[in-house]
């Protein structure tokens, strides 16, 4: 019993040490974002003399963080909606149809999940130029659909396989057509896997950097990650302002996490096992 207690305490100590190390960068960034340049020069470890919001106000006025956030939101919503809508339609039908054509299409989607983005980014940028998707936020959202739909087809396909067919047959007898069966009966049943797919994709779209970097040329269309990158160059070594901007940009995701923690953790675990 005594031994157990000692072991339990040592586990606690190890975990706490890890936690302190893991949280330290966030803590340092937040603390120093309230300081002046001079205070940082004196000591980064000390607490600020007064928690002034000057850096935050300055950053907010000088940067278009709100408009960048809005741009990011457009891209994310368009991408997510398309990934869920197109993916569920295709995944459902592919799971319900047997035959060579259906198998072949499904295999194509699945095999493409292995393609690294960096292998196609060059030709993709040319293609985007060709179809007029380059430089536009909606276009960027569309590209995310093209890149992300394969995984959602795969996940929906697996999930639909486990749903009994009787429901659909009953609806058919009642006179529903294929599309009605899907929207009225199947799609509501897909809620759990839809939540998983949203979780797996939302952070990718919101936090992605390289694709917007290649696609967006107009500063007014910049997403949050591009704006932060630009600002890092602009402010050179003005750390208080940079840190304030970083904290502001990270805040929405942390709040999002606080609200949806349960779904996020479940989504990651479910998405991995399937």
């Amino acid at each position: 019993m005594k031994e157990n207690k000692a072991a339990s305490w040592s586990v606690n100590i190890v975990l706490t040490l890890f936690a302190v190390v893991s949280f330290f960068p966030i803590y340092m960034s937040v603390v120093n974002s309230f300081k002046t340049q001079g205070e940082i020069f004196d000591s980064v470890l000390a607490l600020p003399e007064n928690f002034s919001l000057d850096n935050y106000i300055g950053v907010f006025q000088e940067l278009n963080l709100l408009s960048s956030a809005w741009n990011t939101l457009i891209v994310t919503v368009v991408g997510l909606a398309g990934i869920v809508f197109c993916g569920s339609l295709a995944g459902y039908k592919l799971a319900r149809t047997s035959g060579k054509l259906s198998n072949f299409i499904f295999l194509m989607f699945v095999a493409s999940m292995l393609v690294p983005f960096h292998s196609i980014m060059i030709t993709l940028s040319q293609m985007a130029k060709g179809v007029g998707a380059q430089g536009s936020l909606i276009g960027l959202g569309f590209i995310y659909i093209g890149l992300g739909v394969n995984m959602s087809v795969f996940l929906y396909h697996g999930f639909v396989k486990a749903i009994p067919k009787e429901l659909e047959e009953a609806a058919k007898i009642d006179g529903c057509n294929d599309f009605q069966i899907f929207t009225k009966i199947i799609f509501p049943l897909l809620k759990p896997i839809t939540a998983t797919i949203l979780v797996l994709n939302v952070l990718w779209l919101w936090n992605d950097f390289l694709l917007p970097l290649i696609m967006l040329t107009d500063v007014n269309n910049y997403t949050l990650m591009l704006s932060i990158n630009m600002l890092f160059g602009q402010y050179a070594a003005d750390w208080p302002k940079i840190l304030a901007a970083l904290v502001l940009t990270a805040l929405p995701v942390v709040v999002f996490y606080a609200f949806f923690q349960k779904y996020i953790l479940e989504g990651i675990a479910d998405g991995a096992i399937k």
Binding site: C86, L89, K93, V115, F142, G146, V149, F182
Partner: peptide, 15 residues
């Protein structure tokens, strides 16, 4: 049913 997904996939990944 597959067409919407396939179009995006075709243009932005396969090609």
């Amino acid at each position: 049913f597959v067409l919407p997904a396939f179009i995006f996939y075709f243009i932005f990944l396969l090609i």
